[in-house]
Design a protein around this nucleic acid. Structure first.
Lengths: 136, 136
DNA sequence: ACGCTAATGACAATCATTTTCATTTTTGCT
DNA sequence: AGCAAAAATGAAAATGATTGTCATTAGCGT
């Protein structure tokens, strides 16, 4: 008999309720980041009678289930996006707001190495660059 | 006579008022990040009659003068630190809050390269890692 | 249909941050 | 020193995102 440890396979069954599904599809439509307030307004505009509380709750569940990622805008407002989106970072002009999407495999590798070095698991990262673009 | 363009030397005289000085010295004492609310409470504990409004205003001025940096905690609260502090990043346990300070010259170089590539100037960056530490 | 649980939404509460505005302090000038 | 204008200050109210409360409702299994 092998003494190999059995890998734990996480079989958490993830069930999404109606609100969560609506949010996911709205986020798909957005294709990037959106705040809770923005998502709420989009749904209302579409005639949906969803409540703000429900939007926040559903987003929290989606976060727990790792279906969405969260980030903070400069003013502190939380913005969400689907995890599935290709992971990239942003170079933002702090004057005019122009944004360039950056893919940075080197940073990903760096983050991974650091995490291992310190025995951290499930490490995500936030990497954002802020400066002045050539026009500003 | 030379036709060389004259380099503009920015001689903005930076004068700090009393409140700004107090905040700088408090931040020195802290040696890292602190929120406006925390700084306010520290000063009050020390018997200073400073008002919260003044703390926010002074921090804003220090930001404008590039004397302090700002970052966001996970809950969206803004935290400030002196720019002079050795620049480093953080690896934070999202469960117990344990924090490891990381220095990452490779990320600095990467950020610089990206900035140049897109002709951005005065680029600062935010790099934070969040995960689960070995105890959690 | 019935009973139970999860989900929902209106509303109030919280908390950081910003605004307002009247008062005080500092500064510059004579 | 004396005085006027400008800058700084702080109390209190306003704002805006987010969270908590709680009564109502929708779904589901029997």
């Amino acid at each position: 008999m092998s003494t190999a440890t059995t890998k734990r396979i996480t079989t958490t069954k993830i069930t999404m309720n109606k609100s969560q599904l609506k949010l996911v599809s709205t986020l798909e439509r957005v294709g990037g980041f959106a705040s809770a307030q923005e998502l709420y307004q989009m749904l209302r505009r579409d005639g949906d009678g969803i409540g703000l509380t429900t939007v926040y709750r559903a987003l929290q569940s989606l976060l727990d289930d790792k279906i969405v990622d969260v980030l903070r805008r400069a003013d502190g407002e939380a913005i969400y996006r689907l995890c599935g989106e290709a992971h990239h970072h942003h170079l933002v002009c702090r004057s005019c707001g122009a944004t360039v999407e950056i893919e940075g495999s080197s940073v990903e590798k760096w983050a991974e190495a650091i995490s291992e070095e310190h025995h951290f698991r499930e490490v995500g990262h936030t990497v954002e660059l802020f400066g002045l673009c050539s026009n500003c």
